[in-house]
Design a protein around this nucleic acid. Structure first.
Lengths: 347, 347
DNA sequence: CGCTTGAATGTAAAGCTTTACACAAGCATG
DNA sequence: CATGCTTGTGTAAAGCTTTACATTCAAGCG
């Protein structure tokens, strides 16, 4: 055990595969094989190598391996905004699967800026990343166009998707989830139901809006449709909430929000205007973030299987990279979680 | 412009520094210098190299560079829990500085598990990371012992610290911040002030508790001290809130919480018990997370300059790595943000 | 026994960049 | 003019691993 670790410019003192080979009395090739393809090495040699590795305290030099293998064992996950707690559980799911397969996850926070996303895409051709997991659609289209999930450009979308490009995707059925929420509100007796959408250009929001419309139509309520646009954040929820609930206008009795943060902003607006929730206003959120159980009143919301989305997306990506046959489009199920922010409208 | 990008096993077709050299009519050494030390190359050559690079579409192979330079241009940031939104702004700050210096930030979510932290520490001796930014103290002590911030083991702590090891640190003055909060509560007329601490073993919590005690003592209120322990999360705040406010016992009139999430949990407990906030109970949080403006009532809390903490910590780390003289211990100032969850206690 | 086959291992090149060292030319200095 | 310095560039090694190919040896088979 001669763990080398002396202060100095660099630890050039780290033992290399040569040292192992010397101690084990074999060639470096054999050591390499003992590590990468144990079955190609005799039992006795494998043992000697293992012993030698322990003795010199060897750990492979990853840069050299990456250089030789032309890979990086790194997956980059592109997020629109790391401060949104919605993503943390997805990341956990991704990492669980990635680590098991020997991959690292590099989290790329794009801060809603396509230019940042572009910078991360550059990691792929330079072998600094082996694949991309895209959790945002705010990306220059031209970058994505080349990728159809070929192993030459391994890319998987999670949660989000593009309307006109058919990429491998793991997501929920946003249309259905919206239908579910609106159906539920109608069943409670609501007729004037508004939607507080995320960015209108966002495909998942379009899907949700479509579900909203379809369900209203099915109940002959299209005339009551009202849609305003937010950005998924607290503040926009609050501001658009104030706008929707403006006194002196006929108010909606329920608002379907495309994120929990916006729903919570709406709750604040309602409080400020003195509206009772759920008596005078019902609110439904989306995502079931941790906070939704602790706001006042507790939020009715749509829960996505976040950990599973992360896991499946990573599995899909790794499968794609290995050239395995894969299900290119996976739809996971959502759940409407009824809490205290929804109820029958007061008469 | 012959951007090579054909499907195939790997893009071995990526142009290398040799291609550039051939086109520019010089040696690879000169190309390398033109990129890394432009001043060592004549103006005309530099231009020819630049042109050649553009023509062949060259991008350096990072793995090869890392191998040769024995570095990775990667900093790993170890978090206790990525789902805590408190960290996101710190990460932003770190990334801003890191990217400017050509470094990547690898976020390591330890999920409160020292074993996970250990795995990330392994990246250092194997040249997969050049330095560590530690945002958690839940780390095997033995790992940290070796590091005193020498450039051989570049490590900087942010927010947290160890009681008995003097590492380079960027943090706030937790004692002072607590004093500030308690002083404020006392000035409102509170006498029975409880503390809902984070994990008792955590040095920053100890500091805050010390500030709490000192301030009570300064006002002859030590007899009223009452401390319970949580884990910074919503749920523990709620549960310990219920315990603290248990009917039939003399209740505290104010609770100082070591995180906003716990404070919000306490608010829920108070609501459930029918206690008016701030009339019957005042609550102070810690961290000023985005949510604290949107809960009911809006939370009085202590704000940390999160972005700046991230920036300074990264600057300190990079300075350390370059062997520059640095201020090893930086204390940033906090701010008490008074909102609606605190007030004079009802008579 | 001679031949084939397979398993186990070694040799050496390749992967791409950086950099120590050598070299050449130009210029100034004594 | 000899000397020495500076500036710019090239040569080649080094950084560490993986892997195609070569080699050896033993076993199996006719």
């Amino acid at each position: 055990m001669l763990r080398a670790k002396v202060s100095g410019k660099r630890n050039h003192l780290m033992p290399t595969i040569k040292d192992v080979a010397r101690v084990a009395g074999c060639s470096t090739a054999t050591v390499s094989r003992a590590l990468a393809n144990p079955e190609k090495v005799s039992d006795t040699t494998r043992e000697r190598v293992a012993l030698a590795i322990a003795e010199v305290g060897y750990a492979p030099n990853v840069a050299a391996r990456n250089l030789r293998r032309a890979e990086s064992k790194t997956i980059v996950a592109l997020l629109p905004d790391i401060s949104n707690p919605f993503f943390s559980e997805i990341i956990n799911g991704m990492e669980e699967v990635a680590h098991l397969a020997g991959y690292q996850v590099l989290i790329g926070d794009c801060e809603h800026d396509p230019a940042r996303a572009e910078a991360y895409f550059e990691l792929l051709p330079t072998n600094q990343a082996d694949g991309i997991l895209l959790l945002t659609a705010e990306v220059p289209m031209v970058l994505v166009r080349q990728a159809d999930g070929q192993s030459s450009f391994p890319l998987v979308m999670a949660c989000e998707f593009f309307a006109d490009i058919d990429l491998p995707t793991v997501a929920i059925d946003n249309h259905q989830a919206a239908c579910h929420a609106i159906d539920y509100l109608i069943s409670l007796g609501h007729r004037r139901i508004a939607t507080l959408s995320g960015p209108a250009a966002n495909p998942i929001c379009k899907e949700r809006v479509r579900g909203y419309h379809d369900t209203l139509a099915a109940h002959g309520l299209v005339a009551e449709a009202r849609i305003v646009e937010g950005d998924f954040g607290f503040r926009s929820g609050y501001q658009q909430g104030l706008a929707l609930l403006e006194p002196g206008r006929t108010r909606p009795t329920a608002i379907f929000c495309h994120s929990d943060e916006m729903a919570i902003g709406v709750l604040k607006a309602a409080r400020q205007l003195g509206l009772a929730v759920p008596g005078q206003l019902s609110v439904v959120g989306f995502d079931n973030i941790g906070f939704s159980e602790y706001c006042e009143p507790e939020l009715t919301t749509i829960s996505q299987p976040r950990n599973e989305i992360g896991q499946q997306a990573m599995r899909l990506l790794l499968g794609l990279m290995r050239g395995e046959p894969v299900v290119r489009r996976q739809t996971l199920s959502t759940q409407l979680i009824v809490r205290k922010s929804t109820g029958r409208p007061d008469a």
